[in-house]
Design a protein around this nucleic acid. Structure first.
Lengths: 143, 143
DNA sequence: GTGGCTGCAAATCATTTGCATATAC
DNA sequence: GTATATGCAAATGATTTGCAGCCAC
């Protein structure tokens, strides 16, 4: 069950610990771009001894190894994502949901721009998602 | 001197107040993507009665009117920018400097994506700037 | 004259830090 | 056995909130 995550950790010369495995599994199974609190409170149920600090520490080290990435899209808290190839993100300012956006931009892969070394590229699209938008229209038509 | 900013405020049906004028002027004269603290402490010198709350409030209302935009690029605090057309941003993870990036992406102008209404697009490039990169190389060669 | 704005102090919330204990290797 | 990870409690720092007085219109 956890072999997959054990493998990832070993490949990156990280010690295999329960919190790291659980966090990797959580992110692998929940592509909802959760924040620390969501990860923590979900894992806490099965592992009552888990601490928030450990979640912070683990996410930080997984990020350093580029196994996961953090998103600053919300502006108030970091959101986490298992890093699988370049993709962009859309956040609905109404319901808060974050979607992956499959758009690729010609500039995304460039590692050098004007002499600056680019190590990370993030594209954020903010607006109203289809679902909220439809609800809004319906409310207006009925009102 | 402030006519330009008075005009902007009036055009957006905002009351003309001293903090708003000063903040607009500051952002117009400092394209350094400052955070709240930088704006506050700079303006505080000339206007000792100014409060941080007012800076927060003013930035918020200017943002709602789309006169300025906030950047979540740093991850720990919002940075502000007088909004002049679409452009992207580069942040140096070493010295913290944020540059404008003149790249335009084909997707930047699209207002609808997969049924979602896009109201804001932000492209963040993170890495090591030319200056820090050069210093680093020099240090390695000499060491 | 009044609603919206300013400014202060206190509260909130995400994240960080210091440190003692536990555990992966 | 030891360096590293975990977990707790306290600290920090950005931002928000409640509220009294002020001022742009």
């Amino acid at each position: 069950m956890y072999e997959k995550y054990v493998k990832i950790l070993k490949e990156h010369t990280l010690k295999v610990t329960s919190p790291r495995l659980e966090i990797l599994r959580y992110l692998d199974e929940h592509h909802t771009h959760p924040n620390v609190e969501e990860i923590y409170s979900s894992l806490k149920k099965k592992h009552p001894s888990l601490s928030r600090t450990t979640v912070y520490n683990s996410l930080e080290i997984l990020k350093k190894k580029r196994i996961i990435q953090s998103l600053t899209i919300s502006g108030s808290e970091l959101r986490y994502d298992i890093h699988e190839g370049l993709h962009h993100h859309f956040i609905c300012t109404h319901c808060g949901t974050i979607f992956d956006i499959a758009i690729t931009c010609p500039n995304m892969d460039r590692t050098l721009y004007g002499g600056h070394r680019v190590e990370e590229v993030q594209g954020y699209f903010k607006g109203i998602c289809k679902k909220c938008h439809t609800k809004e229209k319906r409310r207006n038509n009925n009102g």
